[in-house]
């Protein structure tokens, strides 16, 4: 305590006399007293501020708990009970054994991949076109893309049913114009499912693509051209690589949304295209089988998270690769 005391005295000399002897800061080299110059008051203010901030975020935390953590936890919990109500992994092992489940997952995956692919093929040229327009015209185009968002998903899906069915608009016109003789099977199968899903998903692809394309400075294209790149080469060597982040973002969003999609494939697939979400619905609605349905939900969620995680890793990887591509 002797050294401490001497340091304490040292600190005392510098502290304001009214605050009395100091004990706190007597160990360090710096003799600055912690209670000098409002230090204590400022630290208390800081602590109070943090408490207030935490208090303000409590409702949000409660909300997240109530609508995400608890339901997901419950889902997970339910999936661990078999038909007899005993704790087991039966629900999961059955999924591995049964071919029908594998097929459902394959269908889900296929439909999602196809939808994403078609969305890319439609959205990329469209977004490119919009991104090259003056901002005012592009806004009009974007508005057209977003317009369906103000219409109910169900209405849009049934509208497609009307348009695509045996005696729907497309078939009527096609036959009247003599393009084909027999009504085409456009709905209640994969075709209808894809048409509906692409229509619903398109905005999710267009928005990030358009954003990243708009951000590509025209100067890059000018520079490429000045350095000897023809318009086509300038596009593939400069514009396309720079638009990839937006493309990947759109692909991930669309793919993930497709994995859990229910209404549109249920209505337009006509029971022939069975996706995971539909199987879950059947299990609960018809068989009251919460255990298996929960297990399916858990697997779907894990798969979705895995896709997101992979995409995240790949996108970062792409940044690194992209940095070295030109060399």
């Amino acid at each position: 305590m002797t050294t401490g005391q001497s340091a304490g005295q040292d600190a005392n000399l510098k502290a304001s006399p009214s605050t009395g002897p100091s004990h706190g800061p007597s160990y360090g080299l710096a003799p600055a007293p912690s209670h000098g110059l409002n230090a204590d008051e400022l630290r208390r203010d800081e602590a109070r501020e943090r408490l207030v901030m935490f208090g303000l975020s409590v409702p949000a935390i409660m909300l997240v708990l109530a609508i995400i953590v608890i339901p997901v936890g419950w889902l997970f919990w339910l999936s661990l009970f078999n038909d007899e109500g005993a704790l087991s992994l039966d629900n999961y092992t059955r999924m591995l054994d049964s071919k029908s489940y594998t097929r459902i997952f394959m269908t889900t995956f296929n439909v999602s991949v196809l939808t994403t692919g078609i969305c890319v093929l439609i959205a990329y040229p469209f977004s490119y076109f919009l991104s090259q327009l003056p901002k005012r015209w592009a806004a009009l185009g974007l508005f057209a893309v977003l317009l369906p968002f103000w219409t109910s998903l169900l209405v849009r899906t049934y509208a497609w049913l009307v348009v695509l069915q045996r005696k729907g608009l497309v078939n009527q016109w096609g036959i009247e114009l003599g393009l084909w003789e027999q009504p085409l099977k456009l709905v209640h199968n994969l075709n209808g499912t894809l048409v509906g899903m692409v229509h619903i998903m398109l905005p999710f692809m267009v928005l990030p693509l358009y954003g990243s394309m708009r951000a590509i400075s025209l100067d890059y294209m000018k520079a490429a051209s000045n350095l000897g790149a023809s318009p086509a080469r300038a596009f593939w060597t400069v514009f396309f690589p720079l638009s990839l982040p937006g493309l990947f973002a759109g692909m991930v969003v669309v793919f993930v949304l497709c994995l859990g999609f229910f209404v549109t494939p249920a209505v337009l697939g006509g029971g022939k295209v069975v996706m995971v979400s539909m199987k879950i619905e059947t299990l609960i609605d018809l068989f009251f089988n919460f255990g298996t349905a929960s297990a399916l939900g858990v697997v779907l969620m894990v798969l979705t998270l895995a896709v997101l995680f992979l995409a995240h890793r790949l996108l970062q990887l792409d940044r690194v690769l992209g940095g070295g591509r030109g060399a």
Partner: peptide, 18 residues
């Protein structure tokens, strides 16, 4: 107007590649 997706060398090699 340096291409952000290329390295320094990639940028300088660009006109040569073209």
């Amino acid at each position: 107007a340096l291409f952000p997706h290329m390295t320094v060398a990639g940028n300088i090699a660009f006109p040569l590649r073209m």
